[in-house]
Write a protein that binds this DNA or RNA. Structure first.
Length: 272
DNA sequence: GTAGTATGCTAAG
DNA sequence: TTAGCCTACTACT
């Protein structure tokens, strides 16, 4: 699940559900217990997404940091009673019933790579090493383009580098390069500015659509041949990613390992 | 039951 | 460059 769109979606939803309220913070699984104690009962001011990182601002002045890694997931429940944790819940955020609601809102986090309560300086350090996040309002491609055009590394490698542009993962890498018609092994120095501007706009559009839909859909309904009100099936929502054949031209999709992950591309639509 | 897979990243060698 | 880590879900036996 988690590329940048997932993180921003969580930030939006959890701000809506939890911000401005005093929360019970705990760690049913135990590994977050000491940190949880420090903010238990504090008010959550806001939840902010940046790239693949989530930051929780607490009224204590401390900042919660969550990175989902490959496996991290949230489960949100609204229930009459406090629910039993399902699976290995590292962090639980829970409202108390009050005048405006008579139910518990419970947000359970399992499987994250990072989950901690830190001074604000830790967030500053993390943000300092991230490239621009196309989902965020006012973000600009300048820094990304400058880095890419100076690098001999392949664009498929550069796109996964969170210090160059953040929030892009393996699915959006494949899909954005497909839509812009760029071969993933093309060196950054061989990409021109107009192409990279188009790539930025594509990535930005895809990620923002992802936030809106709550899932990755990069294909147009026309290309897929699906009516407007029909749900796009799982495995059908991409042009090249995890496909055997290119949705556009039918050519065989190639798979190569780039930056530790399988990169999918169409040799016909993405010439070197 | 068991194996295999996954949209990530870091630290060790 | 590789191993390791974090967990849930699916497709098989």
């Amino acid at each position: 699940m988690p590329e940048g769109h997932t993180i921003h979606r969580y930030a939006r939803d959890q701000t809506q559900l939890l911000a401005g309220r005093a929360l019970r913070v705990s760690s049913p699984q135990g590994r977050f217990a000491d940190d949880a104690d420090r903010v238990d009962g504090a008010t959550l001011e806001s939840v902010m997404g940046y790239g693949k990182h989530l930051f929780y601002e607490w009224s204590t002045g401390e900042v919660g940091h969550v990175h989902l890694g490959l496996f991290g997931k949230y489960r949100v429940q609204e229930t009459d009673r406090s629910p039993e944790p399902i699976g290995a819940v590292r962090m639980r955020l829970q409202t108390e019933p009050d005048d405006s609601r008579d139910t518990y809102v419970t947000v359970d986090l399992s499987g994250p790579t990072a989950c901690s309560i830190d001074p604000p300086s830790v967030r500053a350090e993390i943000l300092a090493r991230l490239g621009p996040d196309p989902i965020r309002r006012g973000s600009k491609p300048d820094r990304m383009i400058a880095r890419v055009t100076r690098s001999s590394r392949g664009i498929g490698d550069l796109l996964m580098d969170q210090s160059i542009v953040c929030g892009v993962g393996n699915v959006y890498r494949a899909e954005a390069l497909f839509v812009t018609g760029i071969h993933p092994l093309r060196p950054g120095t061989d990409c021109d500015v107009a192409e990279l501007e188009a790539l930025w706009a594509t990535v930005q559009g895809m990620l923002r659509q992802g936030v809106k839909h709550g899932r990755i859909i990069t294909v147009s309904r026309e290309d897929l041949g699906v009516a407007p009100n029909v749900r796009i099936p799982r495995g059908e929502a991409t042009y090249a990613y995890k496909r055997d054949r290119c949705l556009r031209c039918g050519d065989e999709i190639r798979r190569i390992e780039i930056a530790n992950r399988t990169c999918y591309y169409c040799p016909t639509d993405q010439p070197f």
